[in-house]
Amino acid sequence: MNRKDTYSTIRTEVLEVIDETPLIKTVSLKPETPLLFETGQFIQFTVYGEGEAPFTPSSSPLVKERFDVTVMKAGRVTERIHRLKPGDKIGVRGPLGKGYPLEDFYDKEVLILGGGVGLAPLRSLLLKLLSEKEKFSRVLLLYGARTPQDIIYKEQFSQWKKMGAEILRSVDKADETWKEKAGVVTTLFDGLKIHPEKGVAIVCGPPIMMKFGTIKLLELGYEPPQIYLSMEKNMSCGLGKCGHCALGKYFVCKDGPVFKYGDIKEIEDIWD
């Protein structure tokens, strides 16, 4: 067939597999042809003969020759991804969907609210923002995990601070080693001086965290169009054809995965 196959994959080599937590691994990948993605766009990760699963690259879009995905073991395909070793060949389809509208963030106070493995796409965004820090008035990361052991990218927070990010972290269940905040991620707003009128907020995490995170942001004075959500649905084709990821009238894969809360707030059950 001389026409390009709609669902063809780029053959990709696994370079490295990093253990983040007992359930989460970061897989470093080298595609045969560079994957030129915008931060926030996603890919379909194909384990040949097994299945596909969607992930947003967690690495900086400025690095062209390789990229990372951070994967939580949650089902059949992700279980198979966790068994990959350096040198294995997998497939990648993408980049798919729309990325974060970075120009909307220029000159603004950018607040990133992440929970658990939801930090994966946010790391890519954070690295992009920090690479052109002068374009934003402030970059804040508020991150929550269940326990100190569940925090991903443990060694990298100090580096991001050096690059100009303000970072606050919380864990739901602290232990004796934990010196930072204990409680759900929204407790990080207590006593925090922010300027919603001059800002945008970006949220990614488990649905329950996204819901209460958004409610908190609205209470703090953010307007619905200032809140950007990374929505997770059952994306299969990734091209707005198979129907699985319907979020009201939208297809998350094509119209998202990043949505302004203002555009989807009327849709029933968005947090389910």
Partner: peptide, 26 residues
Amino acid sequence: FFLAEGKEQKVRYMDSCQLKGYHRVA
């Protein structure tokens, strides 16, 4: 439809929003 991995290439099956597993996420 649902896009699946076949032995040698991708396979497309008609799917239905009326089936319980259709909307389930990881």
